[in-house]
């Protein structure tokens, strides 16, 4: 466990370093050094993977028990998705948001884990499938929210006609819009899988009185509305991205909301 936490600390430091680097690049308005911070992020990600494996071996279960473990895994998913998709979609600038978020999540996870190593781990396969698919889906949602966030920054710059400096480092509006859409398309089925496995665990009884469950239902509805407007309505641009940000806020609330039948 100690070596796992040490590796996690290393990963957190790496994320912090990359965050500072990305912000510095944005401030200096230069893109030549993106690769340095990306490589640092890769190194931190590798360390994070090692940390998760070490923690898993020492605890004897996948680190998805409790909020701290899940947040650590969520950070890992977000960084992994960024490193792969950011490269393919040529959106290195997303790292300026993804790296600080990953640092915050990892640091929180580290803080809690070092004081209170999760107790009574679940032995159920359904539990790990339930939380695992949620974390994968939420990882995609978090990155989609970052795309939407950058979309608004870019819209603001375009409307204010300040189309130099930082504007240059940003991807096109269309690229951000499509990236967010694809991430939601990938994340939504995973969320539904998480919901279904949750139902399996509770013998197909849905506790409507549970605040967490209520929030998850609201989140599903908002994402459904987003997908409907994009797929059927053919909407693009500011309004659907605003809806996406609302959905992301719902994800956050459903993550934090207390649940009677949930560990977190």
């Amino acid at each position: 466990m100690t070596s796992g936490l040490a590796a996690l600390s290393g990963a957190a430091l790496g994320y912090l370093g990359a965050s500072v680097g990305f912000q510095w690049n944005l401030f200096r308005r230069q893109e030549q050094d993106w690769h340095i911070w990306r490589n640092l992020l890769w190194a931190a990600f590798a360390l994070h993977t090692l940390a998760l494996l070490l923690v898993a071996f020492s605890l004897g279960h996948v680190p998805l028990n409790g909020m701290a473990e899940s947040l650590g895994s969520l950070a890992w998913v977000v960084v992994g998705l960024y490193l792969i998709l950011g490269r393919i979609w040529k959106m290195e600038v997303l790292g300026a948001v993804a790296a600080p978020a990953a640092f915050a999540m990892t640091a929180f996870s580290l803080l809690v884990l070092s004081t209170d190593p999760g107790l009574n781990p679940s032995k159920s396969f359904w539990f790990y499938l339930h939380v695992g698919s949620y974390m994968l889906g939420y990882g995609a949602f978090v990155l989609a929210a970052f795309c939407a966030l950058l979309y608004f920054v870019q819209v603001r710059l375009l409307k204010a006609k300040k189309v130099w400096g930082m504007f240059r480092l940003m991807p096109s509006l269309d690229a951000l819009d499509r990236a967010a859409y694809r991430l939601i398309l990938a994340g939504f089925p995973l969320m539904l899988l998480g919901l279904t496995t949750g139902m399996v665990m509770s013998n197909w009884v849905f506790a409507f009185g549970d605040i967490k469950n209520q929030m998850v239902l609201v989140t599903v509805c908002v994402y459904l509305a987003y997908l409907h407007l994009r797929l059927v309505g053919g909407w693009q641009g500011r309004r659907v991205n605003l809806l996406l940000l609302v959905a992301s806020a719902c994800v956050l609330l459903s993550f934090l909301a207390p649940g009677r039948f949930h560990r977190f």
Binding site: F167, R168, M170, P171, S172, L173
Partner: peptide, 20 residues
């Protein structure tokens, strides 16, 4: 870096909105 004529600036902006 950056467009140096009004026409090129218009095209550059179009690319920043629509990508390809």
């Amino acid at each position: 870096q950056g467009a140096s004529s009004v026409s090129a600036a218009a095209v550059e902006l179009a690319k920043k909105i629509f990508g390809d």
